[in-house]
Nucleic acid binder design. Sequence first.
DNA 1: CTAAACTTTCAATAATTTCTGAAAGTTCAG
DNA 2: CTGAACTTTCAGAAATTATTGAAAGTTTAG
Lengths: 187, 187
Amino acid sequence: MKMSPKVESFVYHFGEMGSKWGFNRTVGQIYALLVVSHQPLNANQIAEALNISRGNVSMGIKELQSWQLISLSHIPKDRKEYYSPKGTIWDMANRVFEERRKREVDPTLTLLRDLQLDTPTDESEAYAQDKMREIHDLLETITQWSAELQRLDPAKLTTLMKLGSGISKVLSIKNQFVKSKADKGDK
Amino acid sequence: MKMSPKVESFVYHFGEMGSKWGFNRTVGQIYALLVVSHQPLNANQIAEALNISRGNVSMGIKELQSWQLISLSHIPKDRKEYYSPKGTIWDMANRVFEERRKREVDPTLTLLRDLQLDTPTDESEAYAQDKMREIHDLLETITQWSAELQRLDPAKLTTLMKLGSGISKVLSIKNQFVKSKADKGDK
DNA sequence: CTAAACTTTCAATAATTTCTGAAAGTTCAG
DNA sequence: CTGAACTTTCAGAAATTATTGAAAGTTTAG
């Protein structure tokens, strides 16, 4: 399993970036390698291609499984497990968003909600609490949006994006729509 | 500068989370502290409140400046610099998105574009290149969307979100709209 | 069963990142 | 100027995170 120069630079780059997207370098590399490989790979092939230890591959695979990013397969007469990316690239992006939300945003929302429950004891606490509420609302709105985005068919999304001039136009259309309903007293 | 328990848990939590959002713990804490403080704080106050060294504060401030997240002010008769968060919470979120895009997505897009230029030499390279193109297109679409989202007035966005049932509805409206234009031959 | 062919675990170590604090740099009032 | 009041820098120390590889665990063919 020798990587071609192109695949190699892709894989290494993805490793570096991956570490900023919530998983470590090795995990990013493993995933990148699987994505560009036409056939499923086993752990030894991965270790060899990436020049990392067998144990490290095992850790990486485990992590990718917790992100639900890979699926297993088997080759007849071969006991080894073969790994390949699960779903499309869009699925992958959704998984990453979702997983990050669960790990990073949800706990924050919980904390902020809890902190809202107490009544502030003085002016400075009131100010702090108000700011925390703002952040809470922001995170909630973003969460809501991304949840809805994820429900969309990506192909449709792309098409819509290309057809119009994007979301601003979409919103102004909706805005008019909502206004005209409101004018008729349709709240 | 003693933090109240509420502020304290907020600040520490934000520190932990911050490290997942592209800056380190200290930077997250400093920013959180500034956000919930009614008055601008100077470096010593920050160091004392967070129990970190003066030098560390200086580093953190520098980092926050590179993210364009804080502004400076001065108090008459006092030589120290006082720091406060720049803009609204929404501005902050935009800055973070934008900065992360610049640091994490843009270089990837560049790399992927470059890798597209070569013609594949064999079937497996062709496959790899095709996957890379998919990722490129995905990242580009996401980039486009987020750029447009940032241009929107956040208040308007929130209102729209609350009025309707979200983006799916918005899109289906636009979809009808575009279709009817298309039916009239309006491309 | 048993042993071969795997995978996983985990303690030790390596690599990386963050933090400190002393020293150097800057600014400005007098 | 000068020195007091700051801020920044940066080398080394501390803390955190990632990696290895040997040992333990698991699965299955025979």
